[in-house]
Amino acid sequence: MKQIGPAIKRIRENKGLTQVKIYDGVMSRTNYARFEDGQIDSSATNLMEMLKRLNLLMTEFANLYDGDTDTVIAVQQQALSLVNQGMTEQRPEPFLKAAALMATQYEDSHYIADHHTQLTLQIYADYMANDGHVVQAAPLLQQLLTYLEKNETWYSYEVSLLNNLMPMMTPDQLLVYLRIYMQRVSKLTQVDPGVASVGEVLVQAFEVAINNRDFEIYQSLLALFDAQHLQERLLFPHLFRQAFDAFAAYTQDQNAAALQGKIDPLLMLVSTLQIPVNGAQLRQDIARLQAWLAPNVKFCDPAD
């Protein structure tokens, strides 16, 4: 079994930090010395705290961890391929195969992110098997949500985990944990450029409201979204917010011409942008909102 302690020691020494900076309040001096020597392992909670004190992202630690890098990358690529297959085919079986791969990797690495990935994939499998609802895997989902709730300081890892779990939350869970996120996002001490922005997280949250056709949740999310100052460099959260606002306004005034006057230019703009993934998602969300909230309103989509 590979030990993580020697990797932590190497990183600590490279950063010029003393042992006490890492173990104080986490474990005893004696146990920490044994941990760095590879004699004992550490709990997942303690490891997370040590990484924070090392000012190290989980993704960075994965790259620096002295394991069989080629094997780890191969397993991750295989798991990702299975996830893509599961998403495309909307079947649980590929997710279960990917979860089994990550479970084996976790037994070897004792890396908390591997375990969380395994649980997330199991939850997705249950979600797919039950027509968009988490049933048997509900305790696993709650386990990961409790992990998020207990972390007073969020890093890029916690934001990524939340973003992955949101589509599978109930509307009530979504609002609870999204508000926790909004409280803690301003305290982020590490921001990975690859991690979703506030606007992108809020866009993802609307999937729950749309999937459940829950207009009360939709309105609550829109209030949060409209209150946010979005980063100017990120175009698509602005476009999604315009679409969400337009459909909310239509439910009040039933003005089809006004709705068309807002949505048609968005569809025209999306057709000219060379960002296919975001554009496809926006087009899909508009179609789903149309079917739910404005079935009698027709739009002009250049892609049709």
Rank of each mutant, 00 (worst) to 15 (best):
K2N: 15
K2T: 10
A7E: 11
A7D: 15
I8C: 02
K9Q: 07
R10N: 08
K15G: 04
L17K: 00
Q19F: 01
V20K: 15
A44L: 06
N46M: 10
L54A: 05
M58G: 14
G67Y: 08
G67C: 11
D68G: 05
Q76T: 06
Q78P: 08
P92M: 04
P94F: 06
P94R: 06
L96N: 13
A103I: 07
A103W: 03
Q105K: 13
Y106S: 01
E107Q: 15
E107W: 03
S109N: 12
Y111T: 08
Y111L: 13
H115E: 12
H116G: 01
T117A: 08
Q118K: 07
Q118V: 04
I123M: 06
Y124P: 02
A129L: 03
H133L: 11
V135E: 10
L141S: 09
Q142R: 09
L144Y: 07
E149C: 04
N151H: 14
E152Y: 14
W154E: 04
E158F: 00
V159E: 07
L162V: 03
L165M: 08
M169S: 09
Y181A: 11
Q183I: 02
R184V: 11
R184D: 04
V185I: 13
V185D: 11
L188C: 03
G194D: 05
G199R: 03
V201G: 05
A205D: 04
A205C: 12
R213A: 14
D214P: 05
E216F: 12
I217H: 04
Y218A: 01
A243L: 04
A246E: 04
F247R: 02
A249V: 08
L259C: 12
I263Q: 10
P265H: 07
M268C: 11
T272C: 08
L273Y: 02
L273I: 12
G279N: 00
Q281I: 13
V297S: 00
C300S: 15
A303K: 10
